[in-house]
Write a protein that binds this DNA or RNA. Structure first.
Lengths: 328, 328
DNA sequence: GTGAAAGCGCTAACAG
DNA sequence: CTGTTAGCGCTTTCAC
């Protein structure tokens, strides 16, 4: 049955069925204004002929695609990989296809990505922002947009956003470190992003709660590329003599673990944001704050779909809750 | 500058510039047959007006998109995540955008994915096959297609394929287990895929090399969903009293590690395919065979681009080499 | 209930 | 060197 190569068009279907292309279109899209009889006859022909609708033609007419543009800031990060996957799964449920571009923590690339995706008339954006100074409203135009993980502060009020409770999560983790006996807790977080800053707040709160001093020398906010992260961690371990470290995300955790391994230390307690299954098998126990990656992915898609349907709704910020995974 | 929302078309640009749309098109695509003067003038107007080309219109005319359809069989697997990422990066270099669908080890979903992507007129496919019985030639039609990691055996001759040296890699890993003192090595591999079978061969070779008996009771080929993998592993550890295990990929490795942890064993040597950075921090040392994920991704894209340019070239199978990562 | 025809934005002949 | 025009495949009024 069917040809594999050349595209067969509704025109040809129409000819075969002895009807007009308008009628075929109606049958194709289950539109009213067509008798059940002809509809079924045409649909039979369509199936048998191996007809494939041209998304281009369809989208061109309707001026909007069934595609969602996703921009992740760091495709190397397991957190983003997991969320991306969830986004894809959820999008598929709504018959959307996903176009993903990795901005690599580079604002220039991110802007570029938005432009490219707009050229494809994506009907929505899901973005993990790289740089809060980007002028999103002008870039995305009136394309529905949802942010996750990182949202430019000023935009929180303007766009739908899916975040987790960073502050609370970090607080829980650091408290657990203290409960396990730590008295001098160092921290390395990403300085640029909202989430990093919020996690830092949580860290401070935990210390305050346990009446430990907040020492600026124990706090390192790393640049995005984390070039100096190794030096920071080493300083915390060697010079500052920390007995516990909190890493702001799993890229930073890797640096921490590497240093601990190099220094051959076994007396350090470690906590981090983002849980990864492999943590279960680590030599160095890692307390972690598990983000609901699947839920995050699903929620971003839901929020987007919702906004497409109701463009007038006020932007909504969702804070999902996190879960502490104790290990010792 | 520029409007953000409504799409501004070449027609409007043409009007502004006082030329015809054909001329605008020429300026847009750097085509000959236009004076440098008008070209530059038009390009200025284009930039200033914030014009965004409609990919749909463009692709519709040219009957081919600048999109590559990628189908991965298991998005949860780190190996695929890494390759996917590399594919995206490389595709971007050629100005291609990537449409990814996860088949979830489900042949039905995979067929579906191919259809969807064809509707988008992707100009090429990159596929990690889920089921060798799928009739790819009829599904992909004349769309250039490259397979990686898994290729339906019968198709190797028909499609470009990027594989690694599975057999050799597994042999190296198992030999290392033996060299480290193992005398009874069990194996769990995925039964369905080419790669799993090849790795099993490598395992047998290693045993032969070291004159160890090949015992069928120590060999488990797991189903795709790996439902029984836990039972298999437990049997190998408890009943068969293996002192070493080889896991065919990192999903299976996780099962192995989980069992070892549950049984609280410290006398087992473990090897696996696919290296993950986190392995460095494991309590249980894991010998691993590192696949060049980045290269795999790049090569698949290169092969695809190459085939688009030269459709007549005979299909080529590339075998990339792997690297043994010793840990003990 | 069905068909004719316009047109989405663009490219590529073909004229001039 | 530039403009006119015909579609690419489809949806959608508007007639009938």
């Amino acid at each position: 049955m069917a040809e594999n190569n050349r595209r067969i068009t509704i025109k040809e279907i129409a000819k075969k069925a002895g009807v007009s292309i308008a009628t075929v279109s109606r049958a194709l899209n289950d539109r009213p204004g067509i008798s059940l009889e002809t509809k079924e006859r045409i649909q039979r022909i369509i199936t048998r002929s191996g007809y494939r609708p041209s998304m281009f033609a369809r989208n061109m007419r309707s001026q909007q695609s069934k595609m969602i543009g996703v921009i992740v800031s760091n495709a190397a990060n397991d957190f983003f990989k997991d969320v991306t996957r969830a986004i894809q799964d959820q999008a598929t449920k709504y018959d959307f296809t996903v176009l993903i571009i990795n901005s690599d923590e580079d604002p220039v690339k991110e802007r570029q990505a938005i432009k490219i995706l707009r050229n494809y008339d994506v009907s929505g954006f899901i973005i993990a922002s790289t740089d809060e100074t980007i002028d999103y409203p002008s870039l995305v135009g009136n394309t529905p947009t949802v942010f996750f993980d990182r949202a430019p502060k000023s935009e929180i009020a303007q766009f739908d956003t899916v975040l987790v409770n960073n502050e609370f999560g970090a607080k829980l983790a650091v408290e657990e470190l203290i409960r396990q006996g730590a008295s001098k807790v160092g921290i390395v977080v990403s300085g640029v992003q909202t989430s990093g800053q919020e996690r830092l707040k949580g860290y401070k709160q935990a210390l305050k709660e346990y009446q430990l001093p907040i020492n600026d020398k124990l706090i390192y906010t790393s640049d995005v590329q984390q070039l100096k992260a190794m030096d920071y961690v080493r300083d915390l371990l060697v010079n500052q003599k920390c007995d516990a470290l909190f890493a702001g995300d799993n890229t930073l955790l890797m640096v921490v673990l590497e240093e601990i391994k190099l220094l051959n230390r076994t007396d350090i307690k470690v906590a981090t944001f983002d849980n990864i299954t492999w943590f279960n098998y680590f030599k160095q126990p890692v307390i972690s704050v598990k983000q609901p990656t699947t839920t995050i992915g699903h929620e971003t898609v839901d929020a987007l779909i919702n906004r497409m349907k109701n463009p007038q709704l006020p932007p909504k910020v969702r804070r999902l809750s996190v879960q502490l995974i104790r290990r010792s």
